[in-house]
Write a protein that binds this DNA or RNA. Structure first.
Lengths: 343, 343
DNA sequence: TTGTATGCGTTATCAC
DNA sequence: GTGATAACGCATACAA
């Protein structure tokens, strides 16, 4: 029992084992290569002392020396969005195996934080970063890459910046969803779109239009309403699509750009006296927990956040292990259609 | 523009400013105390060079020297439980202001991970830890404290271990909830309990009993059913309480130990032909997102996870700043009754 | 008021 | 094979 909280160092181990500090370092790091060979007997003795003393390397000293912090930062727009905890879990599962710890930066939907967190990452000297950022400029990201920090982006926004990206197959998923509706006979399908100045809003709208075109259904701009990804305005928008005066010719299906809007739409429709899915089929996007509980349960799309996190971490680790610089890569993670009762 | 990614050091700043390295260090750290005073003129010049060169301290070197990593670890049982992201957000808000970064460890409900993460924290030499752990033994925690790592626990489990704890006012909240039911005339209130070997399960059951006693309602053990905090068995348990054969004298209210069980109970009751809240009032605990969406919306209890995270981080920072050891403290965070339509 | 010197614990380069 | 020894970048007691 050592006096005080004196954590044993390589020095202590070396003394106890009767070898030099360098030998301990070699044994610890399994430095079998090079012109240095440690005898099996010595190796064992050192390891035994390491055990006995409970020696643990000092990460700070190691980092100072190797310029590797064994730290990965994950920056997300909104930690309370259930997508991100899952993504983080996926990333952590991969990182943990390679002895990396995960630093979480939650922007809480405040754009200014993205930049200030970039500064924090720089200061913390993380080895790599998984970024989900909507407001970062190319120069912010290049701050990271120039500092030798590897960057992987999640979502298409960062693609133009020349970093690895992991993107969910949103287009394909919307296509599949629309096909499902069309197969069930729907021809008049409305869309509750997200803000067209956000990438997801734009992508989902485009994919919606494309799916209609593929099915030979003429584009009808009057079936599209623009919302804000939250509950606000949904009641009005749905009202304008399904006002009772239009009971004659109304859309028979509604595709909302996310589940929050879809759920609010279902409630609004119920208030207006429409049956879902009998009168109107409704589907969303994201597969949030509420989607399973709403009545009727919501047909939607699951992005497999965990897989996205895993792949992002894998790309990052590959880069961290790579000798030479790698070209920017793009990985697409397929979404999964979740068929429930609402459509 | 420096060649390569050579990050400027204090040495560079000193050379550029025509002073010694020590002066730079003093200026950076605002060492106004002690017997060292830096002239305002020098100070300004150094700061100017710092700006110009974009100097940022090397955290690893600093940590090696100061034995402070400026890192706080947060360990949670299950990151996909919406309670924890909120708690982390609260902790981060506080930590960020004091220049601490947050390391997240998600146990994914695997008890074994708790101990392995303790090892990770030890190795990472974090300054402090916020623990939400159900399976940690006293010796695991003392591993941390003996290493000089400050520990704050969330939930009552860690109280016996002599560390600071932040606990939600569950008892008071259950009492309030029960009072609400009793005030509305309910006398036969059933309880869907959690596993009695878990602290929350036990606490909520005890508080339920106590509330009945306070109201002078005789204890009726036949009104209590033990579940598992998830959907499993809920249908059977509710069935046994509200089988149609008992339509005569049935409980008029049901308090479930958490929202997941409460929501499943509502659905089961609907299937059995009971109206909520007309025939049976139902309430839960936790205020998960689904609680707002289920029909009827669920009356429940919100634990204010963000406040819990904030307070935990505050306690931690106080300890980290303290000169002398502090006695173990306990902070209770009041829960908030969320009255909706189900009760 | 400023500069010098030392050590924090590792890794890695050399001679031996 | 092994053992000194020099960085890594910073903070600080102490000398000037």
């Amino acid at each position: 029992m050592s006096s005080e909280s004196h954590r044993p160092t390589q020095e202590d181990v070396a003394r106890e084992a009767g070898v030099s500090r360098a030998v301990v370092s070699y044994v610890i790091n399994g430095r079998s290569g090079g012109n240095v060979r440690i005898s099996e007997k010595t190796r064992r003795r050192v390891l035994e002392v390491v055990q006995r003393l409970g020696y643990q390397p000092n990460v700070n000293a190691r980092s100072l020396r190797t310029r590797r912090s064994q730290l990965i930062a994950v920056m997300v727009p909104d930690l309370t969005n259930p997508f991100y905890p899952l993504m983080i879990r996926g990333a952590q599962a991969v990182a943990q195996r390679a002895a990396y710890d995960i630093l979480v930066y939650d922007c809480d939907d405040q754009p200014a934080r993205e930049r200030s967190f970039v500064q924090a990452m720089l200061g913390r000297m993380v080895d790599g970063v998984i970024l989900v950022a909507f407001h970062l400029k190319a120069e912010d990201v290049s701050l990271l890459t120039r500092a030798g920090i590897e960057v992987v982006g999640v979502g298409g926004e960062l693609r133009p910046l020349g970093v690895d990206v992991v993107v969910p197959g949103e287009r394909e998923a919307v296509r599949e969803l629309m096909r499902h509706l069309i197969d069930r006979g729907h021809r008049s399908i409305a869309h509750l779109a997200g803000p067209p100045d956000t990438p997801p809003g734009r992508v989902r709208l485009e994919a919606y239009r494309q799916a209609l075109a593929e099915a030979g259904i003429p584009d009808d701009e009057s079936l599209v309403r623009y919302g804000t990804f939250d509950r606000e305005h949904v009641a009005d928008l749905v009202g304008s699509l399904f006002s009772s005066s239009r009971h004659g010719a109304h859309p028979t299906a509604l595709f909302a750009a996310n589940d929050v809007m879809a759920i609010e739409a279902i409630r609004t429709l119920a208030r207006l006296g429409w049956q879902v899915p009998a009168d109107v089929a409704v589907c969303g996007f994201d597969n949030i927990p509420e989607a399973e509980v709403v009545m009727p349960p919501l047909t939607t799309v699951d992005q497999d956040a965990e897989a996205i996190g895993r792949r992002a971490a894998e790309l990052l680790l590959e880069r961290l292990r790579a000798e030479a610089p790698l070209p920017p890569r793009e990985v697409k993670i397929a979404c999964r259609l979740v068929l429930r009762e609402s459509a």
